[in-house]
Design a protein around this nucleic acid. Structure first.
Lengths: 182, 182
DNA sequence: TCAAAAGTGTTAACAATACACCCATGT
DNA sequence: ACATGGGTGTATTGTTAACACTTTTGA
């Protein structure tokens, strides 16, 4: 989980493009999934001036993320969602909302795949669900359930990376199923 | 379904307050449910100038709504969702999104009750679902399902309005369950 | 007494859960 | 040969869906 100071929208710039640009400028992160979260506009949320924040959340495999300090974000680090530091203004609320949205979309969207590479094994996918839900899942039931949703398919390739049986490599069937809300 | 020209946010005005105010000023409608929908900001969505729209949708019993022409909205009328007139800019997209959101929240939220008075019968509630889903529902299963959700309770009162058996009057148990998203 | 909507239970089909062992590989 | 993670099926339980008749009232 990443706390980013907000940026400003350029004239003639798309909202999502702005979010992507700010993310890139302040962290060096590129090419990941972004989804609009909510627009916060309480006049008192920043006591010093009126700020309206059109918030987005980003998802990525963690190994694609290399926090990089910049002029705006001089201190950068990763925090587990359960151990966030004290955040400014209403930013804790915003993160809680993002977290809630993420969890609620796990079951019916392809959001979990945004945290995996294009090609992945079922065990990797199960890990994502287990970490997010904070519970252990039964391997057989998980596989049955995910395959029944018809959103992934075998590639025919295998992952060989240990002294054990190779795992089938899967991919998402239709990458354009991405956006459920928008 | 109601097409409303957008209004402008006053300084120090809350976003939802703005939406409520505009709705009131242009239609006379007051005191109904509002929920933030999405923020649209494509630089080309209004070719003549850059407009960012923080959209809200409102829900109400139809008999609380009295379309009233105003300076901004000189032509006002109700349209079934399936027979909307041609709309300006990306407004058709916005309405489709609102419609989709409404349908998707039917099953797990208390959104349907926003279209009913505080006190209602199960037949009235079933009507709301049938109209929105555009299908007939089985009365016994509907009642079983809705009661199992434990969100409504009997008031002890009865509705007598025809030459038939009176209907029990229900109300929502906890009106503060209202907002699921926010 | 009739018409009109309210109210009510049971069965069958389907979906979700619990659960344990064999497989392929590298060392 | 053994340790490691990959892969599979069945039986039970819980949930959802189909289905028809009786009740109460006003006219």
């Amino acid at each position: 989980m990443w706390a980013l100071p907000g940026g400003f929208l350029d004239i003639d710039e798309d909202l999502e493009t702005c979010a992507k640009r700010e993310l890139q400028e302040e962290t060096g992160i590129e090419g990941i999934y972004l989804e609009q979260l909510y627009t916060f506009g309480d006049p008192q949320r920043d006591p010093s001036e009126r700020v309206i924040s059109i918030t987005y959340f980003a998802l990525s495999q963690s190994d694609h993320l290399m926090p990089k300090a910049s002029s705006d974000a001089t201190q950068t680090a990763w925090f587990p969602i359960s151990q966030l530091p004290e955040l400014a203004f209403d930013h804790a609320t915003i993160i809680q909302l993002a977290w809630k949205r993420l969890l609620s979309k796990l079951g019916y969207s392809t959001i979990a795949f945004k945290m995996l590479p294009k090609y992945f094994t079922l065990s990797q996918l199960q890990s994502v669900y287990e970490i997010l839900l904070n519970e252990n899942l039964d391997k057989r039931n998980f596989r049955k359930g995910i395959l029944a949703r018809n959103i992934i398919k075998e590639t025919g390739e295998y992952s060989r990376n240990g002294s054990h049986r190779p795992a089938k490599i899967y991919q998402v069937i239709n990458p354009s199923q991405i956006e459920i809300i928008k």
